[in-house]
Design a protein around this nucleic acid. Sequence first.
DNA 1: GTGAAAGCGCTAACAG
DNA 2: CTGTTAGCGCTTTCAC
Lengths: 335, 335
Amino acid sequence: MSQNGQRSYTIGDIAKELGVSKTTISRAISGKGRISKETQERVRQFIIEHNYQPNIMAKGLAQNKTFNIGLAMPEEFGIGDLPFFQHSVNGICQTAAQNDYDVILFRITSDNLSQMKRIIKNHKVDGIILTRTQCDDYPVRLLKENGIPFVVIGSSLDTEVTHADNDHISACKMLTELLLNRGLKHFALIGGNMEYFVNKSRLRGYQMAFEEHPGEEVTSVTYLNVIKEFQIVKAVDDALSVGTDCIVCMDDFICSRVVAQLSERSVRIPDDVSVATFYSSMLLEHNNPLITGLEFDAAKIGGIACQMLIDILDGKHVSDYVSPDYRLFMGNSVK
Amino acid sequence: MSQNGQRSYTIGDIAKELGVSKTTISRAISGKGRISKETQERVRQFIIEHNYQPNIMAKGLAQNKTFNIGLAMPEEFGIGDLPFFQHSVNGICQTAAQNDYDVILFRITSDNLSQMKRIIKNHKVDGIILTRTQCDDYPVRLLKENGIPFVVIGSSLDTEVTHADNDHISACKMLTELLLNRGLKHFALIGGNMEYFVNKSRLRGYQMAFEEHPGEEVTSVTYLNVIKEFQIVKAVDDALSVGTDCIVCMDDFICSRVVAQLSERSVRIPDDVSVATFYSSMLLEHNNPLITGLEFDAAKIGGIACQMLIDILDGKHVSDYVSPDYRLFMGNSVK
DNA sequence: GTGAAAGCGCTAACAG
DNA sequence: CTGTTAGCGCTTTCAC
């Protein structure tokens, strides 16, 4: 029954109407098996004319598939995570729809995987996409144990999981090099939770740029695991006290707080100190001055991750994807 | 087959093991039909011992249900919408899971309902939750036409749709009254897209407070449909030029921009002008000074909407819900 | 209280 | 190239 009362067609109905067997209809639709161009066309016509839509539940039952992919949504999030996640979701939904899959959303926290367990036990998804995972990943273990196909948006050291990620190392290295070439001398790097692999990559890129600039009289202080507001305040104070002329922020949230702190102290950007961010987002887009920083296409990476998962489900071999597709936004926050 | 190779139990297996019929197992699980306490208990034991999980696809096929609810995600969003949506999703997912439903996410734009159509045609959901809808709602028409049960988070004039919403009118009225009682005299209200019903409600509450304060020498200018940055700049400039002593912002995004504009003009809050917002969010939480404004529990309203939908699916009668559950956060942005 | 049997709509051997 | 037959795992009459 369709929801509006009029019974919807089944392949049985079509078979009867067209005077052929259900199998033929099934084949005409799926394109699998041998079938004549002619009958195929007849079926195709009938289908669009009568607006036939296959019943996914039946198809799923027969093929032991759901045509759903699960998307783990981190429950603990800061405002900085939102734009990235939201854009990823856009890309994921779009790609999924193109492949006739749907996206089942579930919440996940580091200590509560109950929703994910439910979804697995209930056979509600064919595979799962994990986002922004921490380095030590309990969800990954669970998925491996249960043999659920999955991909991760973001990176880790685990070579047994399939990742899709931006090339944070190259991007951060590139931005840092640019800052060095501008003649800035005294750097301060302020970064958040170093449990996150992405922050490790950012630090790595930053360090690589310095390693390749030997013999220069540049200095760098780093403040890591800066999470609470008071830690940001402290980091900014300390950086200013040691004569920093360039503050590099690991992400958009930290950057927005740093900018606010500088403003309160009447420190001018970029006259007194330059500011750049390794991750730019909507959170900063209205700032004055405009902040120089790296921009990533979250929707694209989401779409790619989704396609990778679907390929895996189709039995194809897929390997990690590292997107070279980042941009440097040149604001006027750097001298 | 479970994903990890070991075949999972079916009711057939359990029936064989326990020496009864499939029907009995089915009844023991669902609790429907007559069954002895004893066999029921035996089945219950077996199920938890062997970790049996019913196959939703089969159940769905038999009952013509999916146990999924669709959640429409507005694709065009500003950073201001994100926290609300994200928190709603949290509440929705949680309530859904408690009722053994899952949440299928799909994108929706005012001119593209293709994803929603897909999901309906594919019978992937039993009902749908719409969020933050515009006053004139094409999606609503489509759902009605197809007879898909749905609820809306937010309000509209349509009495035929079931809503769950916060009591914006009362909340905004209350905040405005507080500002009036503080002795503020010259108000400026800055609001966004007036196509959104929520903004109409906010305006209504604001006006009601004024109507009940007759004979006072208070003035009020309103700037509506203020969406682009330049419009915000213009509104702030104009408000200041007419001697405003209190700027009321309709939402968190506008407020954050207003605060930034005031800061650039070295206008002190609250010494030179008081600022309040009809919608407070994470976006403002680190602001200095702290902004006085209304706080709503998006997760709660999401959970309620979800429960309403599930009740509808269960054939229960439900009526609109207006949550009286808002809070006024007292910052120090009001004199 | 329990069971046998039919069927949800589709796919997948296996024949022809 | 097409049809027959048997399921997928569960619910649901209808008997007993």
